[in-house]
Design a protein around this nucleic acid. Structure first.
Lengths: 151, 151
DNA sequence: GATGGGACCTCCAGCGGCTAGAGGTTCAAG
DNA sequence: CTTGAACCTCTAGCCGCTGGAGGTCCCATC
């Protein structure tokens, strides 16, 4: 009898936890597998491949709707793959945005932290800067350039 | 005149939504204000300042427990501000970690996207690469684990 | 003083992407 | 046949809000 793969086997093979695998199934990223007589999930190679796909896409930060779209494309080999390219490009743009924001954040935070010379909290520049909201008024930390706003 | 500030006044002044202000109060980041006879929140300047502090700290990505700590420090001017420096430094470290992850992600994703030359999905390298999880090359530590795959 | 409509109130649910636990059942090794 | 590890379902929780339902209050205008 060809041995099926248990959920634990998939978990070990892919590094995705069993609970997460079940959750992917509930969310429709993985098809529901067959069951043993006792009700345990019984997977095959196709499931393993698909889970690998999903995991890799998640590692690359694709949100679940994007993964659903990619899966749909992978399932319909005749469709134009331009859509896949679009999904990937959008994901890159999203990452670039996050990167830029984090860099700006990092810069301001470093500036703030460096201003602290120790001593009593009453004189702490970190707390001062945080408390001073002339400094703020920006929803986006991007524009908070060191020389520009708060003199 | 201007006996008190309404929640809407605070919202307009700080750019923090009223619902979020109420939520900060529930979470203990803002003290509960006095109420009008009808039950509306009645704020003073101190609340406005405090909300500015919280908002700015959030913009810098401090998680709520860190903000609680910073607020505690700001309230006790005699304490050593080394703690504030520690909080800021930890936040910088967290950002650096995220930045590094995102950069690696971005690089791989760009590589993946570039591989696509258009055409049918069956030949799309994006989908191929996502499906093939043995392609290695990823500096992300999350990715590095499964050396002993399904043989 | 009445009225209208916007601002406010409370409570609850939901987002993404899982994760953990309770409490019960099944499988496979010895 | 007996363990006990792995599995099952279901529920709730994490962060940091956000939105909606359904009701009440405030205040400018007539």
């Amino acid at each position: 009898m060809a041995r099926h793969l248990s959920i634990g086997d998939l978990a070990r093979a892919t590094g995705v936890k069993a609970t997460t695998i079940r959750w992917y199934e509930a969310e429709g990223l993985l098809p529901s597998p067959a069951r043993t007589e006792g009700g345990h999930r019984a997977y095959g190679q196709a499931h393993l491949d698909r889970l690998g796909f999903v995991r890799h896409a998640r590692e690359l930060g694709f949100p679940m709707p994007a993964i659903r779209e990619l899966l749909g494309l992978a399932d319909q080999p005749d469709r134009d793959c331009g859509a896949a390219h679009g999904v990937a490009t959008a994901q890159i743009a999203a990452i670039d945005e996050k990167l830029e924001r984090l860099r700006a954040l990092r810069a301001e935070l470093a500036r703030v932290a460096e201003a602290c010379r120790g001593g009593r909290a009453a004189e702490c520049r970190i707390l001062e800067v945080l408390a001073d909201h002339r400094h703020g008024r920006c929803t986006d930390p991007l524009h908070a350039a060191p020389g520009a706003g708060p003199a």
